[in-house]
Simulated assay, not measured.
Amino acid sequence: MAPRIDRTLIEKTGNFTVTTNGYLYLTTVVDAGVVIDLYFMNGTTGIYSQAVGDGTRIIIPPNATSIKVGAHSATSWKLLMQKTIPNKNLSELNMYRDQTGNLFISGDDDVLFRGQDTNLSTLDITGLRLSVQTLSELFMKALWSGTASDAAKYIKMKDAVLAQYPKM
């Protein structure tokens, strides 16, 4: 089973300080054309700052304890923070096998997060063909439906497909 994805969504308006609490990654959500300033802090010491727009992906420095968000008083913003660092896009399935036969799957963080609290033993996938093609189809269904049950079916199939291949 994939490791648990721990995330939080911070939604605020104007200036605010966010504690990092072990989160390693964030994505910004702001209106188009809006820029906010992020000041990464270690206690009271600044580490670095960055002006960001919508959809900016940032790996939070390991020694950062907080992030000061600088925004105009009427500017609303969101930080999607995650304790694991996703490969690229959170909703873009990537699969490949290396020369030794190991299967690598990434880009499914959003679907994994949505279905991770569902009891997989209650789901039946025995009527489905065990293949990466079926896995891809289940991923797309889970992505578009947005339901926890479709996401959990994807997770159960992912576990079954990965069991077929050697793991590193």
Rank of each mutant, 00 (worst) to 15 (best):
V34S: 11
T84C: 05
L130M: 03
L120Y: 13
T65H: 02
T8V: 14
P166I: 14
T56M: 06
V18R: 01
A142W: 01
P166F: 13
K156H: 11
T84D: 07
K88L: 06
A64P: 01
Y154D: 03
Y48C: 07
S131Q: 00
W77T: 02
N63S: 11
D150R: 11
V132S: 05
I155Y: 09
I85D: 07
S136L: 01
I105H: 04
M41F: 07
L128D: 02
M95W: 05
I125L: 03
R97P: 02
T134F: 05
N94E: 12
T28R: 03
G33L: 08
Y25H: 13
V34E: 14
G14Q: 12
L24A: 15
M1H: 15
S149V: 15
Q116V: 10
L80Y: 10
G14C: 12
D117F: 14
Y154M: 08
A152W: 09
I59M: 05
I85R: 08
A2E: 15
Q164I: 06
P3T: 15
F104H: 15
G70S: 11
P86F: 06
A51G: 11
D54E: 03
M157I: 12
W77L: 01
S76K: 09
Y165E: 05
A151W: 06
K88D: 11
T44S: 10
Q164C: 11
V132G: 00
V69P: 01
V29D: 06
M168D: 14
E11F: 02
D98M: 08
T28L: 02
M81E: 01
S145F: 05
A71E: 08
Y96G: 09
A74H: 09
E137L: 13
T56N: 04
L80G: 02
M168F: 13
Q164M: 14
G101E: 09
L38R: 11
S145Q: 12
F113N: 07
G53T: 06
N89Q: 07
P3Q: 15
V111D: 02
S73Y: 10
F104L: 11
V111S: 02
S136G: 11
M1E: 15
A163P: 03
R57A: 12
T17Y: 04
R97G: 07
Y154L: 09
D117H: 14
Q50S: 09
T27L: 04
N21R: 08
R57M: 10
